[in-house]
Amino acid sequence: MNVLISLVVVACLLIVGMFGATIAPQWIFAVALPYAAVAVFAIGLAVRIMKWAGVPVPFRIPTTCGQQRSLPWIRQQKLENPSNKLQVLGRMALEILFFRSLARNTRTELRKERGLVYGTDLFLWIGALAMHWALAVVLIRHLRLFTDPVPAFVTFTEKADGFLEIGLPPVNITTVVLLCALLYLLYRRLANARVRYISLPEDYFALFLLLGIAGSGAWMRHISHTDVAGVKELALSLVHFSPMVPTGISPLFFGHLFLVCVLLMYFPLGKLVHGPGVFLSPTRNMANNNRAVRHVNPWDYPVKVHTYEEYEDEFREKMIAAGLPVDKE
């Protein structure tokens, strides 16, 4: 049910994008919407991050995943249990670039029947890593459309990506990887009862949206061959704030563009904000040095305590009888 709703919604969006552009004035879908989407994305994300950053971190609560820094002769696991900012940076880099914690799931195991077996959750790590990295490369490749002259690193990325030189234009590895990874993540969500049970419509929506975007993009590149020059003309004109819509761009491109706009606008609202969010996660971005360096709670307030005086007043006689020292005789 959740799956179906999400699928239908994304399909409708694609259709709206494709045919909206032919029915309605083109500037709505080609100009106004992209600008609006980028604005919503940028402002929405900024607001979201500022909201998080505006909430104080009252306590230093890192999750420690290795040996602490203590005595000089005990080897500290600096990246698993950092004790200063530099080490935290290292831990965060591992987390953000390589999804360290997800990789922890792997467990190689020697089993009688089948020899060496890897925990299946290694697949989740691979799937997630492949999806995110491929997406990053795809985004870099798209810079080609927004820049003139095209920066060297973009050209290089594209060359490297298409080194297999299959087809014309050559098939980029990341396109394939991205689609496969997304399909795997979708498959996993559907096939694994555990994950299916916890999934919300939003989870499928995000996957279908990305699949729609990647799928339509690949389709345009390899099958329907959209007028790339025209698209670049449009993209550059948008970047230079002198929008003009060339004729002859296929509806599928507008469908693609529309889904991208939806993604941009949805990004700051929904679960996709986990990207920026991970940078702020207190269990990962703090050093485990609270005993060495005091952490201050900005909203600390005095609480009602039971003072020693009150305590002694209640027990004085008995303390004296038991030979315990007291402050007031």
Binding site: E109, R111, V117, N192, R196
Partner: peptide, 15 residues
């Protein structure tokens, strides 16, 4: 069902 999936899938006797 979701428990079934977890218990059937994971073969590590400690996990």
């Amino acid at each position: 069902e979701q428990t079934y999936a977890a218990w059937k899938r994971e073969s590590n006797r400690f996990a």
